[in-house]
Design a binder for these strands. Structure first.
Lengths: 328, 328
DNA sequence: CCCACATGAGAAACGGATTTCACACTTGCC
DNA sequence: GGCAAGTGTGAAATCCGTTTCTCATGTGGG
């Protein structure tokens, strides 16, 4: 069916080995042969079978990408970045969505691991131990999670928090709520940690509210608690949560930002679509995806030297309509 | 490194061929051998190398999925459906995002085609001819596009339009705008066609407005034209466009739905997040993804009988706050 | 008791590409 | 002129599993 190396070899009047060499190790064959082989390969429309190649080289030319939920616009953005960078490097991408399920995650990763050269795990939900075990047997890069000796890409969260809190305090807010995400989420623990750190030496009181699912519904459900907490500004675990808050506030007739300012994380597209638009700390998404692939490629090339790499990517506060001066 | 069939064979004291048979053609080996082999395989954690198997069977166990833009929430939903169904059938999914570029699309598809058993093309942008040529050499299923002799999954668009127009006319709207999407889009052409058809025998005037990119910005940009057109209701090409309209209307102080009703297509998540929430005709997304994989699997199993299959999936009008009685 | 036939399992071929090994043939130097 | 080093190429081994071919054993029938 498909044109194989033998077809090219026959057509070019050389052996299969020469075809390989002409295409992948140019310096080993004469200029003349190389050109002839290349032309015949071209004219026959030959492309090496990656599976067959992978069998012998041990490289598949594929990378795996695992995300918790494509329904959260954050992740498709990361996927886009991964895609783009992977294709540039001539890698194809296997995608798996775990539906926020740590068990499914482990299973999918294991299934993937044998068909790919390495895996980019975005916001993994599985336990540290599992993750470490996994990284020991397969090249793995983490996005939005940090574990010793596993390369990772994370946002500059401290800076993000300073921007967020700085913005709110400048507006006069002194009592600020934080609607926490899933307890099992590394990102949430980090956010809380950073927040507390940033808040410590400011005259700001931080009110931590419940743990919600990192979705719109989570925010909707937490909104009334936020109102009851008597804060003048609230930060949601992520934009979906903050959008949920906004939605419920609007339904209850709470003026935003008049009575209450709302701020989110991620800067997903819908943040700019609502009215008032959501002020949000933009976390790297496509950028993180690209950086994740970069790290993975480096890890594949020189495993020893790159296992400790930890990249922190910059964040940026996008000030929009949902934050304003604290009510007097 | 990984445990191969030979390791199992040695451990079980049989030949490699027997291992294969025990695992894939149980009726060819004795009960006793079969069990012994299976147990050793299990205990060694053996899983056949898919690439090697694919080499000889011609099946890779992978399917390709190509979408135009993961940035549009519509597509991640389809991806989720594809994922879910594919994993159920023990297939892995290669994903590619074309960034709405027909040329890139053709290239990506060609690259993918050699590593997968078949491809699900979601809302492809390439020309009919190319698509037909492609389908001739690779098993392909289309989502949101219809071409003779290529299996496809499409929404029941006629019904969708009847629901949309029925809803608006019941609210008293007589002059309705339609903000068209990309001219190259099959979906847009179909929507226009259906709309005209549905409108024909009703006392409704349809005003078609420009062609915009199928994104939020497209809607924002078209909003003022919509206002100038003097309609009492407007239907956007998709939800992103409609959300753009809503956003701009809000900015210009146009009351929705008081002065103008807005309706969209797709029912993406953000539609329910804005205020007023967007009334939208829900098109099958996850469902379409699942159905696409189903069709592809059938196509792989019996190519002759299934090439003509065209599945139409039901749609559902989600009435929300953005539509109301026509102003008097 | 022998033959035809079914059954179970091993050996070998195969799929497509890469890599190692081996072999001609140049070329260069003493 | 002869030997060593180097260059270009082909043959064969290899990757891992599946499939075909073959053979040995055992069963039933005549």
């Amino acid at each position: 069916m498909a044109v194989t190396i033998k077809d090219v070899a026959r057509a070019a009047g050389v052996s299969a080995s020469t075809v390989t060499r002409a295409l992948t190790l140019p310096e080993l064959v004469s200029e003349e042969t190389r050109e002839r082989v290349r032309r015949t390969a071209e004219s026959l429309g030959y492309h090496p079978n990656r599976a067959a190649r992978g069998l012998i080289t041990g490289r598949t030319g594929n990378i795996g990408l695992v995300v918790p939920d494509l329904g959260n616009p954050f992740f498709p953005s990361v996927v886009k970045g991964v895609q783009a960078r992977a294709h540039e490097a001539d890698y194809a991408v296997f995608l798996a969505d775990t539906d926020e399920d740590a068990t499914a995650e482990a299973g999918l990763v294991r299934r993937l691991s044998k068909q790919v050269d390495g895996i980019v795990l975005c916001s993994p939900r599985m336990a540290d131990g599992q993750l470490r075990a996994l990284a020991a047997e397969t090249p793995v890069v983490l996005i939005n999670r940090r574990i010793a000796r596993v390369p990772s890409v994370v946002p500059e969260l401290g800076d993000a928090m300073r921007q967020a809190i700085g913005h709110l305090t400048a507006l006069g807010h002194r009592r600020i709520g934080y609607v926490a995400g899933p307890r099992s989420s590394w990102a949430d623990r980090e956010r809380v940690r950073s927040l507390r750190l940033v808040v410590r030496d400011k005259a700001v009181e931080l009110v931590e509210i419940g743990n919600v699912t990192p979705q719109f519904e989570g925010g909707v459900g937490a909104a009334d608690q936020v109102l009851a907490a008597g804060v003048t500004a609230v930060i949601g675990y992520n934009d979906l949560v903050s959008l949920g808050l906004l939605n419920r506030f609007s339904a209850r007739g709470v003026a935003v930002p008049g009575a209450l300012s709302v701020l989110g994380f991620d800067d997903i597209a819908p943040a700019a679509m609502v009215t008032p638009a959501l002020t949000s700390v933009a976390l790297p998404k496509e950028h993180a995806g690209r950086a994740g692939v970069d790290l993975l490629l480096r890890l594949l090339a020189e495993p020893d030297r790159s296992s400790a790499i930890r990249r922190e990517l910059p964040t940026q506060l996008m000030v929009r309509g949902s934050t304003g001066p604290a009510p007097v």
